[in-house]
Amino acid sequence: MLNLLTNLVDVTVLYATPLILAAMGGLFSERAGVVNIALEGFMTIGAFSAAIFTIFTGSAWIGLLSAVVVGILFSLPHAIASINWRADQVVSGVAINFLALGIAVYLVKRMYNGSAQTPVVPVKLEQISIPILNRIPVLGPSLFEAYPTTYLAIAIVIIGAVILYKTPFGIHVRAAGIHPAALETAGVSIYRVRYIAVMISGALAALGGAGLSIAVGSEFNQTTVAGQGFIALAALIFGKWRPGGLLLAATFFGFSVGLSLIGQIIKLTNYVPSEVLSMIPYVFTILALAGFVGRAESPASLGKPYEKGSR
């Protein structure tokens, strides 16, 4: 029983980590008023660059760093389109998603002789164990013997919450998403605030993707991310655009995945088809939303381009 619980927490942490990172990225962008359906694309490009740079430099940490840099670069077109050009942000996000997967797989095929996946990375981010804490039953083996990305994710939720609620920049971000005109009147550049917020989203989502290709997994291919950016977006909305909320939502989703996988191990498949077990996370999410969470109030100016001098 204890063993099963340990496994459950383990899967929860494994699945929630990339979702938390990407959703935190989405949080900054959307709280600043820029819709971010491009999380999927940022994760993809992050996973790709992390794998490639790890292969070429032989260092997973450089790989991780490069994912952040490339993620930021990749967020710029989305920023330019949605902030300067006042384009429809959903449209630009969809374009980014196409672009990321297209470019990543195109380059992999070009670099590796038509191969659909990169070679296995020579080094990976290894699990770091925190002595004593990792002995805690059930939670210890997964939470305190985790990948660096998991620690990063937890740290980023805390730091992100502090930034968002306790610093002037955070106040500007939130104001830019609710009443940008008022912020502009106060002498703050909306463009600057939104640019930084979108760049943060690129960086964090790419970090989440990197974890998939150089920590949990060890290569990049076109199914490495496979929809997790959209689940992260769902977690962001589910968590009502709040750091604590999205943390809970991502954990809840990971937990449900854990339940569906445990079901396989304890031979529930003798009674329930495996496909039905696989539906669990999605059904649970719907039930939770319909039953308990309900109305999602998005930031008031989400998706609305800001025109200088407008009210």
């Binding site: 899967v11 699945y15 854990g258 396989q264 031979k267 498949t269 496909e275 696989s278």
Partner: peptide, 25 residues
């Protein structure tokens, strides 16, 4: 024999979680 199906041919994360669960069991 413990059996587990990921219901996917491309989900390495799921493959890993299932393997981990089987090893841990």
């Amino acid at each position: 024999v413990i059996t587990a199906y990921a219901e996917s041919f491309g989900d390495a994360t799921k493959g890993r979680s299932l393997s981990k669960n089987m090893f841990n069991s």
